[in-house]
Amino acid sequence: MEKKENRERYLPYRCVLEGGTGEIVEKKSRFLATVRKVETEEEAAAFIEEMKKKYWDASHNCSAFVIGRKAELTRCSDDGEPSGTAGRPMLEVLLGEGICNTAVVVTRYFGGTLLGTGGLVRAYGAAVKAGLEGSRVVTMRYGTRLRIGSDYSDIGRIQYLLGQQGLPQENAQYTQRVVLETVVAAEGEERLIKELTEATGGRAVLEAVGRYYFIDKE
């Protein structure tokens, strides 16, 4: 099995699986947030341009995006709002939520009343939060797909252990022996292997058949 120190390089991260929208109204100004999953700066730029064309009649289309699991690339734009009152607070919400590979555009339709710098900061931040609430945000964890082979006499113990830890039981095959697969997060892999080995007296055959990021149960 992969060494623990290597697995720890792969930290969990949060991202938008399905984008959505959210809206708030502040002193008759409408703030409409549109959230989109993006993988590259080019995708983010295309999305922002798409929103600007869609909401061409709006007062402002402010934007922010985060690319990379460790937020390696970030950008934001006030789109004509006073400097630091729109794009930066929008970006801070994304970073504060630990969300990556995500872009958001907040479209403002001016309601006739000035909000002041503090009011704008709060409104744009709140709009992004509303947009995220309208999206599907998931946690991605790095882990191992573990194939487990056992005799029929041991399968009950194995299924009980997997059930106790809330781990999936997939691709089951019942022939001369039972073979099934599960997916376990990297930080729980060693513990699971130890428990399965002890529960079956070392009779279970364990094989790592893949390592990748998967969606953590919600």
Score class of each variant (00 low, 15 high):
K3R: 14
R7H: 00
L11D: 00
P12I: 04
Y13N: 05
R14D: 00
R14W: 08
C15R: 11
V16P: 07
E18V: 10
G20A: 05
G22T: 04
E23W: 04
E26H: 08
K27V: 10
K28V: 13
K28P: 12
S29T: 10
F31R: 10
K37D: 07
V38T: 13
E39V: 08
E39I: 10
E42P: 06
E43I: 08
E43F: 13
E43N: 13
A44M: 09
A45Y: 07
A45F: 07
I48Q: 06
K52H: 07
K52L: 08
K54W: 05
Y55D: 14
Y55Q: 10
S59Y: 14
H60F: 12
H60Q: 08
N61I: 07
C62T: 09
A64Y: 08
G68P: 11
A71M: 13
T74G: 04
T74Q: 13
T74A: 03
R75K: 15
D78H: 03
G80C: 08
T85H: 11
A86D: 05
G87Q: 11
P89W: 06
P89M: 09
M90R: 05
E92V: 01
V93F: 04
L94N: 09
E97C: 03
N101V: 07
V105P: 07
T107S: 14
Y109G: 13
F110Y: 15
G111E: 14
G111I: 12
G112N: 13
T113R: 09
L114F: 11
L114R: 11
T117K: 11
L120V: 07
A123E: 05
A123N: 04
A123S: 14
G125A: 02
K129R: 15
K129S: 05
A130Q: 06
V137D: 01
M140L: 15
M140G: 02
M140R: 14
M140W: 02
T144M: 12
T144S: 15
R145I: 12
S150Q: 03
S150G: 10
S150M: 13
S153T: 14
D154F: 03
I155Y: 06
R157W: 04
I158V: 12
I158C: 03
L161C: 03
L162K: 04
L162A: 05
Q165H: 15
Q169H: 00
Q169C: 01
N171I: 00
Q173C: 02
Q176D: 14
V178D: 00
E181P: 02
V183K: 03
V184C: 04
V184M: 06
A185C: 02
A185L: 01
E189T: 07
E195S: 01
L196W: 03
A199V: 07
T200F: 01
T200H: 06
G201C: 04
G201E: 03
R203H: 11
V205L: 12
L206T: 00
L206A: 04
V209I: 15
V209A: 07
R211S: 12
Y212N: 14
E218D: 10
